[in-house]
């Protein structure tokens, strides 16, 4: 049957399935059929689906997730090289990075991250439960609400209110900065330094936070010497 089309691999905390190129609907049906034929193997599992470069929207992934949950399988993560698909997965609360090593000796998954000056641009409000992780910079046009998390290898810029948790220079870059129109994060981390916002007085002003003598320091943007 079509079972050959589907590559299944056991990884550390679940099962990784590679979906081959071709029409999504057909491939999805083939996957579900494969699962139905091997029910005992999949039941109760956490599934990671690698969809390659496919661009998938919420209904596509939601229908897969629902079909899987009807079979008592948890869709844990969707891996993709498409940014759109990655964002969709994050919106649905799915992971987009998993440790793909076989169950067994541990490897460091984060090592190969910071690479050049790439940035992601998000034009939306990030709400509680949203988590954005990027090896380069993160730019948000919108608010970052409490309970949301931004983790960047480089800098973080929020053109809006920043009230969630942010971590700039997450791979150890002590030169990283965090800028926002209203800088009141739940927690602000730069490299390995962790800080919380002091109580604010008066109207919000754009600020920039960076490390000065090993201390996270926020300064008024208008007085900041560039």
């Amino acid at each position: 049957m079509q079972a050959k089309e589907i590559e299944v691999k056991g990884i550390k905390n679940g099962i990784l399935v590679e979906v081959k190129d071709g029409d999504w609907q057909t491939q999805k049906d083939a996957l579900l059929q494969h699962i139905d034929q091997n029910q005992g193997f999949f039941e109760g599992a956490q599934l990671v689906v690698n969809v390659g470069s496919r661009v998938l929207k919420s209904p596509d992934l939601a229908s897969l997730r629902n079909a899987l949950s009807d079979r008592e399988i948890k869709l844990w993560a969707v891996l993709s090289t498409s940014l759109v698909t990655e964002r969709t997965s994050q919106d649905l609360g799915l992971a987009i990075m998993v440790d793909q090593s076989s169950p067994g000796p541990e490897k460091d998954p984060i090592n190969s991250l910071l690479d050049g000056d790439e940035a992601v641009f998000l034009r939306r409000t990030l709400r509680s439960g949203h988590k954005v992780k990027h090896p380069g910079h993160i730019v948000v046009l919108g608010d970052v609400n409490p309970g949301a998390e931004l983790i960047a290898g480089g800098n973080i810029i929020v053109w809006g209110k920043l009230r969630g948790v942010v971590h700039a220079g997450a791979m150890g870059d002590t030169e990283a900065v965090v800028c926002s129109l209203d800088l009141s994060p739940t927690q602000l981390r730069i490299a390995d330094k962790i800080s919380i916002s002091p109580p604010k007085k008066g109207k919000a002003r754009p600020e920039i936070a960076q490390l000065e003598n090993g201390q996270v320091t926020a300064r008024d943007w208008s007085k900041f010497t560039r």
Binding site: S58, A62, T88, D91, L92, G93, R127, S128, G129, P146
Partner: peptide, 11 residues
């Protein structure tokens, strides 16, 4: 806020 995020994601 979390719920709104999920509802929006479900389109």
């Amino acid at each position: 806020d979390r719920i709104i995020g999920i509802v929006e994601a479900e389109e």
